[in-house]
Design a protein around this nucleic acid. Structure first.
Length: 603
RNA sequence: GGGGCUGUAGCUCAGCCGGAUAGAGCGACGGUUUCCUAAACCGUAGGUCGUGGGUUCGAGUCCCGCCAGCCCCGCCA
């Protein structure tokens, strides 16, 4: 409906301007145009679109809104192209104009969707900068080496992946960057600990499996906190690492490799593709960041540290807020790395990523930090003209008590345990249902369905929530088989797959399509919204909009399925209804794929 | 002290550029299956949109004040 609503908007704008030529030319003289304010109808009984533009014109034109609406409608009724698309417009309420699309128009839209793999979503040509393709860079997931992925990484990973998929579908080149925490002072204690507990690992390849890295990290941390000589050794180790001592580097690499393997297991389960480029990657560029800030006269020495004072942000006692980019001991910190990363990502290749759009998917708690870093990047002139630099923040994952999600013993929940539990619960639900229905299924089937449903439930629960709000994690709710959940959507697809098995998904010629039931028309209208929703998600970066749409589409389909016979009806309705089923399945599958959720044929 | 986010039905949440009588789901109550997977469908009840002002023809939505919760604020990320 994207193109259709554009056409209508133009037609209505013309009608508005011919109805009120003086006001139109006055608006044009001011560099504006009269706005018909055409939006999707707020309720089905108001038709397909509503024109709100008559109301705000009442005052300047000194006419009643209904008079204005009448004048617009009179103009529209002289337009044959318009009358080809819409039924005669209806003036309603204080001065709204309701538009109802003609059935022939809707059927045309449906038949072009049926042969369009992109389901009406336009593909944009690849963006170019400096003559080369310019990717959208999305920075997401970003766990820390030697720590286990936990719920805190869940939202970034899932939301980032979904946004990346939407951009890819729209035709953008996307660079999915995993900015893992692979550098910093914590490596001092880790390497020191490694040298003591497993020195052989440094000389013999694959000599040791570090096993539970979390336990390893905890041991190292405990010794660091308790043992002075260990602390001293750790600090020395940091210096060695930074000066590229081969043994320290080897130990560092060992820890990174081990972590990478652990992370990859999670990414494989979640079916998420990422390019790892950790903080250490930017080490060679840190000095240049400081140099450039100095050249741009942004650098100030304060209390022994090199800072940039932020504009428009004040700290305690109203003083400008500093951002430290070089510590008093000469070391760099995360702000420096983040600045180097922005610079690199916008720079032209080969010494940069040549990006025009850079998106960070991190928790809302880092909003201040990114606002500061972005401001410095702007002031240092590292952000090209027309480039976009965005923080995409999200709220916390909370337990059902409304507090930060913890295990019963009060520890952070490991991501793999969380996924395991979702799958286990999905499995026991499934087994119970099979038993109740007297169905017999193979163990392979049960395993596959449980995994798919469990992971889908976790992802969908997260994505269907508005990004910014804190999100209350509940296995019971996300796996519930009713409501706005992954299983509900998956079930709609399973129903269609069942029809396909029994009735076949036959091809239908456009002129054979014929509909006569209200449930068909409401499903048709729902199907046609898909393209607008995708474009909206791309603009707003809010995957929950797609979830809401897919849920409403599923509801609309389930009503249709429940109330209208499909296989047991005469032609041409049988074929027409099957065509709607196929289009529903294609739309749901595409939508779910954009959420990163695989679908099922049976469940 | 400064800044950010949040506050909508008993619970969990939607609500698009300000538009018509504020919507879902869960839970509660009632109904639907000789028929394509009932993990579904239909119906009923449930609201001072935190609060007080302001802007507007029109405010859940925009502006200001206040209240509550969470988060951030110099050498961790």
């Amino acid at each position: 409906m994207l193109t259709l609503s554009k056409v209508l908007k133009l037609q209505i704008q013309n009608a508005l301007e011919s109805a009120f030529p003086e006001a139109a030319s006055a608006a044009r003289a001011a560099g504006k145009r009269l706005d018909p304010l055409i939006v999707p109808a707020s309720k089905p009984e108001f038709g397909d679109f509503q024109i709100n533009g008559a109301l705000p014109l009442a005052k300047p034109l000194k006419q009643s809104p209904r008079q204005i609406a009448t004048a617009i409608v009179e103009q529209l009724e002289t337009n044959a192209d318009f009358l080809n698309l819409c039924k005669p417009p209806v003036i309603a309420g204080p001065g709204f104009i309701n538009l109802i699309l003609k059935p022939s128009c809707l059927v045309n839209e449906i038949s072009s969707r049926l042969i369009d793999k992109r389901l009406g979503v336009p593909s944009i040509p690849p963006k170019k900068k400096n003559g080369e393709i310019s990717p959208v860079v999305i920075d997401f997931s970003s766990p820390n080496i030697a720590k286990e992925m936990h719920v805190g990484h869940l939202r970034s990973t899932i939301i980032g992946d979904s946004l990346a998929r939407v951009f890819e579908f729209r035709g953008y080149e996307v660079l999915r960057l995993n900015h893992v925490g692979d550098w910093g002072t914590q490596f001092g204690m880790l390497i020191t600990h490694l040298k003591e507990v497993a020195p052989e690992a440094l000389s013999t390849p694959n000599a040791i499996d570090l096993g539970d890295l979390v336990a390893f990290y905890r041991q190292a941390k405990q010794r660091f906190d308790e043992d002075n000589s260990f602390q001293l050794a750790s600090r020395e180790e940091v210096v060695k690492l930074q000066s590229e001592d081969p043994i320290a580097l080897k130990a560092w690499k060992l820890l990174c490799d081990q972590s990478r393997r652990e992370f990859q297991k999670i990414y494989d389960r979640l079916n998420i593709d990422l390019t790892e480029r950790g903080e250490s990657f930017y080490n060679p560029f840190l000095r240049q960041v400081i140099e450039d800030l100095k050249v741009k006269k942004l650098l100030v020495l304060d209390d022994g540290a090199q800072c940039v004072f932020l504009e428009g942000m004040t700290g305690k006692e109203g003083k400008p807020l500093p951002m430290i980019v070089k510590k008093s001991d000469g070391g760099f910190n995360y702000a420096t790395t983040d600045l180097a990363a922005i610079r690199y990502r916008f720079d032209a290749s080969p010494k940069g990523d040549n990006a025009l759009r850079l998106i960070y998917v991190t928790d809302a708690g880092q909003a201040n930090h990114f606002a500061g870093v972005f401001q410095i990047a702007e002031r240092a002139n590292w952000v090209p003209n027309h480039a976009r630099l965005e923080h995409v923040p999200f709220g916390l994952v909370q337990g059902e008590d409304g507090k930060k999600l913890k295990t019963r013993s009060g520890e952070t929940v490991r991501l793999r345990d969380l996924l395991d539990e979702a799958i286990e619960r999905a499995e026991s639900d499934l087994r119970l249902r099979l038993k109740e229905e007297g169905r017999l299924e193979s163990e392979d089937f049960i395993e596959h369905v449980s995994k798919t449903v469990g992971i889908a439930a976790v992802k969908y629960a997260d994505l269907s929530q508005h990004r910014l709000t804190n999100y209350q994690f509940s296995f019971d709710r996300m796996l519930s088989l009713q409501g706005n959940t992954a299983p509900y959507l998956l079930y709609a697809l399973v129903r269609i797959a069942g029809l396909a098995r029994k009735g076949g998904m036959i091809d239908i010629a456009p002129d054979e399509l014929q509909f006569n039931e209200p449930q068909e028309w409401s499903l048709i209208r729902e199907l046609l919204k898909f393209d607008e929703v995708i474009v909206e998600v791309e603009e707003e970066l809010l995957p929950n909009r797609l979830c809401t749409y897919l849920f409403e589409l599923s509801q609309s389909f389930n009503r249709f399925y429940d109330q209208i016979p499909i296989l047991k009806t005469d032609e041409p309705y049988r074929k027409s209804r099957l065509a709607l089923c196929r289009l529903t399945a294609d739309t749901l599958k595409t939508g779910m794929t954009l959420l990163g959720i695989p679908t099922l044929e049976r469940m």
